[in-house]
Structures are given as structure tokens and as C-alpha cells.
Design a protein around this nucleic acid. Sequence first.
DNA 1: CTGAAAGCGCTTACAG
DNA 2: CTGAAAGCGCTTACAG
Lengths: 350, 350
Amino acid sequence: MRSEDIAKLAGVSRSTVSRVINNYPNVPETTRAKVLRVIEQHQYEPNSFARALAGKRTDTIGLFAISMTEQENASRIYQNSYFAPIVDMVVDTANARGFYVLIHTVYSRGEFQKVKQAFQQKRIDGGILVGTQKDIELVREMVDQEAPLVLVDYDISEIMAERLNKNHLAVINSMDYEGTAEALEYLIGLGHRDIGIIKGSMNTYSGRERYLAYENTLQKHGLPLRNDFVLEGEFLKESAYREAKRLAQQEELPTALFCSNDDMAIAAMEAFAEHGIAVPDQLSIIGFDDAQLASRITPKLTSVRLPVDEMAKAAVLKVIELCDTDEATFSTTSFPTRLVVRDTCKPPAR
Amino acid sequence: MRSEDIAKLAGVSRSTVSRVINNYPNVPETTRAKVLRVIEQHQYEPNSFARALAGKRTDTIGLFAISMTEQENASRIYQNSYFAPIVDMVVDTANARGFYVLIHTVYSRGEFQKVKQAFQQKRIDGGILVGTQKDIELVREMVDQEAPLVLVDYDISEIMAERLNKNHLAVINSMDYEGTAEALEYLIGLGHRDIGIIKGSMNTYSGRERYLAYENTLQKHGLPLRNDFVLEGEFLKESAYREAKRLAQQEELPTALFCSNDDMAIAAMEAFAEHGIAVPDQLSIIGFDDAQLASRITPKLTSVRLPVDEMAKAAVLKVIELCDTDEATFSTTSFPTRLVVRDTCKPPAR
DNA sequence: CTGAAAGCGCTTACAG
DNA sequence: CTGAAAGCGCTTACAG
């Protein structure tokens, strides 16, 4: 069934059918009703491709999960407790507003092409990029395409300050620095002086910010910054587990450990448990994200709550907004975090 | 940049450009190379809509997560530990084969229209449906559209036996009956005679099968089937928690509880913990799915492993296969389960 | 081996 | 208010 068929059945032209479908004002109620009834009767659905080709929107947004740090075999992006809720919220929010969402994961530079293609082939009206920003030129290329684009957890300003206002672009991130600082102030307030960190991915805005806040806060309080207390975690369970094991075998341990996300905090706790290191009695642990798991493990994990849901929702609303406006705009929104105190921190033993 | 432009630059016609793009044999290597170089140079990407409109595939498959039992506000489909890995695997598998995936969640009958529309509007080449099968006519309507369709965890045979072979259809499910029977035999082997169940959603193939196996296995061993030991869980954490709380207040408790999925098992354990009922000392618990969480909580949950990853992957391969073939086919694949014994079961106290 | 032309199913100035 | 016609960017018989 094509618009032509509907037109015939309703005794009008395709033009009029189109006008009705697109809800144009210049068609009398009786005509509209007549057409609408035929459409209804035959459950007619205009071909989305033909519409798009003729200049209409596709009503589809892209969601691209970039995970270029992870290994080939570690390729399960949603195992990461950060992505799952984002996908969740993005899909729900977009759907609720009548948009489909096209998902693609990117584990390598080559796959990144698919992201560009999705835009170039006009499959989507706009897109959301979330994840590691390993190859910044790739992102730059994206931005150059001038399609509506929302970047989650990206530090775009330093990269392309000059052309920001020529694009339909928005950045969404969280106040990682402040959140981390709050966590560390809390530990310091408990009396900790030897505080370690499991770093996130340095290819990531949040990873860098959290580390920076760690350094600065310790420094501010005149606390030692020991290299052997700084672990490379890359935001991954596996590396955190490995690093925690290594730490466990050191002669000296910190009395508290800030973990750049909950996945790593939980993996580290497992490692420590295996080495008979009691949390929080011998070692206080604090995570970041406040993932679902955080409150379900024992002991319950103290964590900095990241409003992923709000962020994901904001990202969708933003792309849609960008799709709706013609002028180039750039905006960046930072979402506040909040320390959720649970059972993994207490004053140091001595 | 359109194919016309490429044609001009390469000094050929659009036809030839098209032939090159579609990798048709009847074009000499030199011509092909020439065209390819121009395409390369200009990073030309054919408009996917125009291609689709002209009869080519869209290279997109749909993934529709149906969750019509859940409440409006419980609408977080991915919180369900069953969906997240499916989405994960479907996207990865499809992407690896050059397909995009269009995701849509369905929480109500109205939203189900979007699923049909995705097909009718020709947005996708084929689709995967997973979730509750509340309104069987909806599914029937889908099937009638004759588009490639894979149903995960559906019991299609009883519904439309007569037209199965007229469609591009496949069903993927797991051996829920056998898995449940194995779990119950294990409990019975430990000496349990008073065994309860938290049922899953009866709108679901797996929900029904698991319950059926529960009944049959108890019966087979001459064990009592007590109504007050049968809880309605709907596969949801919330209801399981509520029901477990209710059970905890009963005078008599079962000595073992089979939970139709891990989400419910874990929620129930939380409820029992709050009532001071020790697992497994006073009550043995067994789950289903072997979700990620199962091995991370304390005590570690004994569970029937469901090969979701394999199932999801199979679903994708199947749709793609269905898209590739012209003849109508119907197939159904059942994946075996496996009992993973951990720490939540022991012989009954007395 | 290759080009001109028709067609896919819409939308949108344009003219009336 | 409404229809005829051009156009969106491809693909594919058709003819040569």
C-alpha cells in the first residue's frame, strides 16, 4: 500500500495525502477526516525511506558505544555496568518521543567508520557518542560532518575550541572532579593519610578528572602521593582485579583506596578478600558510579553517585533538540554527583 | 556527494558506479579500480535510504524487547539481568556482520505498533522479538507480515501450527523444563521434601515450562504440592521480594525454594535476610539464568545456567539467514541448560 | 561491457 | 484548498 493507493481510495491526490500525513494546516477537516479514515482502514504506513529521501527526518537517533581501550576478547561493552543503564535510558527516552534508536558498538578504529557511515548514509538524524575518546581525530571528523551530535563524557573544548559554534554539538558530562574531591575529603576526614587510587581510562574525560582530583586533593592536604599506591585500572574489572592482587602483595598498603568506578572497586574487593585483607577494617574502599551492584554486595560499597539516568536522558533530549533547530549551537552540561556513604569505609586502624 | 558525482569524476555512468558498489561481476577490473579510487578519494557513501527504496536491503535488524507485564514505572527493561546480555550480544553479533540494530522497547499494547511499523515502514530487514508474549494476536499479526522474524522464548507452535511453513520464522528457546527438573532433582537428592517455587511470568514460555517442570517433578517423587509454597513472581525483583516477605511470615516454611530466575532469587534472599532466615542453613535457594550477580553475592547463588549469549547470537544469525533466503522456513532451536552448584543449597535441617 | 531510462514511494514548491 | 510535476539518490532491466 502506497500513498498513491490511499489517494485513489480517498478520491484525492498524493499531495493531499501527504499533507494529511504531515499534519499540514491547509487541508479542510472533512478532507483530512476522509483521508485519515482510509489510512486507518488499511493500516497504511508511509515508507520511511521514501520520506527520508524526500527530505523528511528519519526519526532515528544513533547511539554509539565506543570502547577502544578494551581488548578484543573483552568486547562485552554492556558488562560494563556503566553502559547498560545508558543504553536502557537512551532507548526508553528516545522511544517515548517517537524516535527509534540505532545502536552500534565500536571496539576498533575500523569499526568507527560505521559511525561515520551511519551519518553519511543518512540513516540517523543525529547521534550520541559515549565511551573512550582514544582517537580524537575520529571525533573531530565526526564533528566536522556538522550533524547533530551529543558527546557523553568527552572533553571537547580543548580539542576544537575554534569551531565549536559552527556545529550542532553538545557535551554532557558529570562533575567528576568535585565528586572525587568529596570522596577524598571524606576519607581524609575519617583520618586516612595513605590513600591509593585505581585510575580509570586516561582516554576518558572522567578518568582524567578523577585522577586529577585525587592528586590535587591529597596535595592540598599535604598528604603523600605514592606511586606504588597508584594503580592502572582502565575502568575494567579485570585490570583492577590484577592490580589489586599486586597491591595486596606489597609490604605496605594504603589504608584507603579510591576506585575510579564501582566495577573496579568490586573487583578489587574480591581480590582483597582472597588475600585475607578485610574491608573496611584493614582497608577502606570507595567507588564511583553507584552502580546497581554497589548496594547488593557485602559489605555494601560506599560510592559517588553518578546520575547516569539523567545524563542519558539529557543526551537524548539534546540530540532531538539539535535535530529540531537550524542554527549551529554548542552547549555543555555537567551533572552533579553525590557521595553515598555505605559500609566500606571507616577510620584507619592505627 | 551522490553517485552521479562519482560517475562524472570517474568518467562513467551511474549504472557503472552502482555496479561497482554492489560488486557485480560484469565490470572490468580497470573500470572498477578507477571508480573505486574516486569513491575512496571522496569518502563517498551511498545514501542508504535511496538504496533501500530502490530495492536493496537496509542492513538493519530490529531488536524489540517486549515487557508488557511490567508496571509503567518499573519500565527499566535492562535492569532485568536477562535483557542486558541479550542486547549486548545481539548488537555485537549483528555489528560484526555488517548490520546495524534498531532497538525498541515495548511496555504497552500501543507501543507494540512501533514494532509493526518498523517492519511496515521497511526500516529493517528482519527482527528479533524477546520478552513476554502477553498478547498473542500481536505476535500473530507480526508473523502474518511475513517478514523475517525470530522469536526468543516464545511458544509459537501451539499458536499457529497451520501457517508455520508459510513464513520466514524461527524460534529460539532454552530447555527450561529439563533445567528446572535438574534443579529439583538436585534439591530432592539433598533430602528436601518441602519445596516451594517463585513462579515467573506465565505469559512467557520459560515461565510456564519452569512451573510445569516444578509440578511434575514433585509429583513424580510423590512430594506435596502446597499452594502456600507457590509464589507469584512474574520474573520481577519487586514482586519476588514482596512475596518472599509474605512467605517469611508464614508459620511453615519450605526447606527449599526454586526461583524461576536469579533476579527473583536474589531479591528473595534479601527479604529472608531481613527476616533472619539463614540461607542455606534454614532455607535452600536455587535460581535460574546464572546471571552475573549470582556468583558475586554472598552466599553465592546456585543457579541453572541459561546460555543467553549463545541464544542471542543464534537469534541474530537466524534473522540474517532468514533475510538471505527466499523460501519460507520455520525452525526452532532449544538450548540446553546446566546446573551450577554454589553455596545456597544444603540438606534440610531436620 | 555499458549507458539511458524507468522506477522505488515519498515531499514540496508551483500554479491555479 | 488542491493537483501535476519535479526531485530526493539509488538500482536494474533493457537495449546495444
